[in-house]
Nucleic acid binder design. Structure first.
Lengths: 337, 337
DNA sequence: TTGAAAGCGCTAACAA
DNA sequence: TTGTTAGCGCTTTCAA
């Protein structure tokens, strides 16, 4: 691997000082009143010979790595991967590189990737938190690291949060089933902090109708087959159930599988899913789903983080919680058939 | 943001020299014959006070960033996200951070992210290439950058490649339809280099039976609705078609949607999809699919890259092509109904 | 308008 | 066995 040219080499070749070269390289030529000709000469030469400054040297010197660390539950979850790719696009344009890491919804894993990314000098964080991580986040905040919390958040933590209205979404979804004539609505969810609001939304509606809640809260760690089994026994052992509201996409998949295996009368159960999916439209019946405004979420996250990162912005970005509405996409699965 | 302690600060606090400290920090205590007591003292102190060396300084000094750059077509594609997350897990354990970037199958985008990651001093690359990128890869190779090519590769390029047997997979899938009685088998694919072998596999089988090929090659840039429309008109304008083989997951989704919209006799078409999907099992009929051994692929990629990166390995890793078999998961969609 | 030089935090050759 | 110190490549203050 041949050694790369350093700024000194190039300065030498060009017969200018490193200072001058550095200024021009960073677009500060004007500001520093370097002569037009020199600027031109340098820029042309750079373009021709293709010199690229070493990022590490720059980062070490400036203390900025131009890198953003993002921590999600699981990059295989389409919600996260879509948010991540939306963020990546905008970040790239702004000169930032995005590093995405998965916590697998495991506290120690999350702590260690936060530490890892912090040690790697990421300039800012984008985090989908899990229960138990409050302190780590508080520390990060105390350190002064810019960060955005998304998907769910800790009200006590005074961070900048970007979420959707999970509670209302779940409430409306449940109401929708109710209005379509379902009276025994089960709710299948995960034991994750991020599900808290959805559980509340469901519970609120059910209780507002003096009905009984019926919640299955599954451990996150289960694999697909285990989920199918758990759901199957939940459904069969609650024989009065006429409909189910699934709290995440992955659960819906498991649930659909369970129901399709059961067949018979179960095939007529009402179904709503939190999070939409391309295939829901193709299924028969189509699956009614709550859709999150992914594009908006990702754009909002990265734009706010970028302005936190932008030191020129003299006005500090105040902590706040931005909440997007969700949309109920009605398909056949939520009506009596 | 309070300034972090440097190795000098810590050395001072500990009353040892930076060298000693640095050696111990890098686990070279034994090797450098630092006294047991000093090593212990340092390690304890570090643990208590939580000092973490600055990666940038280290990288600048060693010339190694302990970072791997991965370039995929689109991180939202489940195949890529699964491979990426498998790689990430192993890389993390080996002390490497993975940066995943999407090329969106766009040549300039791919060139620019390769350049970006290279400027960021990634130690190695993992790349799913597209047509036109040969030269860039050749340059990278000339530079001596360790890299692994996956998904598809350029036979002329003498790189380390990890792929599945696309040709055979496509051949067998087509044969499977044929053996189930279908005679007018269409093939719907994308205008991507990665599809080349699949097209060949399909074509080879069809021609081996003296049948006519019927291929729809769609531009990658199309969105979901456009794909549905193109597929719809392909199907309706080729009225003799009795079955379709979809070359990627995303096309299958579009195709299923198109077929479900068309309804009627089209609902009985034979269908096979390249790449499996959780939901294929839930659909009615279940979708027959070719499954790639994702876990094996990701493990193989990262393990080989790691050994290329490991300078202790005196034996160089020779360029070669590792080809995994694929598996045909037979479901109802590929039989006459 | 340009140049010299001191750092940024770490590694490692060399000296002691 | 430990300490001194010269880089790694870049930015930026200060001086000219």
């Amino acid at each position: 691997m041949k050694k790369k040219r350093s700024i000194y080499d190039v300065a030498n070749e060009l017969q200018v000082s490193v200072t001058t070269l550095s200024f021009v390289l960073n677009g500060k030529g004007q500001e520093k009143r370097i002569s037009k000709e020199v600027i031109q000469k340098i820029e042309n030469y750079i373009k021709e010979t293709g010199y690229q400054p070493n990022h590490l040297g720059r980062s070490l010197s400036t203390g900025k790595s131009k890198t953003i660390g993002m921590i999600v539950g699981d990059i295989n979850n389409p919600f996260f991967s879509e948010v991540a790719s939306g963020i990546e696009k905008i970040a790239l344009k702004a000169g930032y590189t995005l590093i995405v890491a998965s916590s697998n919804n495991e506290l120690n894993q999350m702590k260690s990737v936060i530490k890892l990314l912090n040690d790697r000098n990421v300039d800012g964080f984008i985090i989908s938190p899990i229960a138990g991580i409050e302190e780590t986040l508080a520390d990060l905040k105390k350190e002064g690291k810019p960060m955005i919390i998304f998907n769910c958040f800790f009200p006590d933590l005074n961070t900048f949060n970007i979420v959707v209205d999970n509670k209302k979404g779940a409430f409306e979804a449940t109401r929708h089933l109710y209005e379509n004539g379902f009276r025994n609505i089960g709710f299948i969810t995960l034991n994750l902090y991020s599900q808290k609001e959805r559980i509340e939304g469901y519970t609120n509606f059910i209780e507002s109708q003096q009905l009984n809640t019926n919640i299955l809260k599954l451990p996150y760690e289960l694999n697909y087959e285990q989920i199918i089994n758990k759901i199957t026994s939940f459904i069969t052992s609650n024989d009065e159930l006429d409909s189910v509201f699934f709290s995440t996409n992955f659960l819906t998949l498991g649930g659909l599988k369970a129901i399709s295996r059961l067949g018979g009368k179960y095939a007529k159960m009402g179904i709503v899913s939190f999070d939409d999916h391309l295939l829901y439209d193709v299924l028969n019946p189509g699956i009614t789903a709550i859709k999150q405004p992914v594009k908006q979420i990702s754009a909002t996250i990265i734009n706010h983080l970028l302005s936190m990162l932008d030191k020129d912005a003299d006005k500090k970005v105040e902590p706040q919680t931005i909440m997007f509405p969700v949309e109920l996409i009605v398909r056949a699965s939520s009506s009596k058939r």
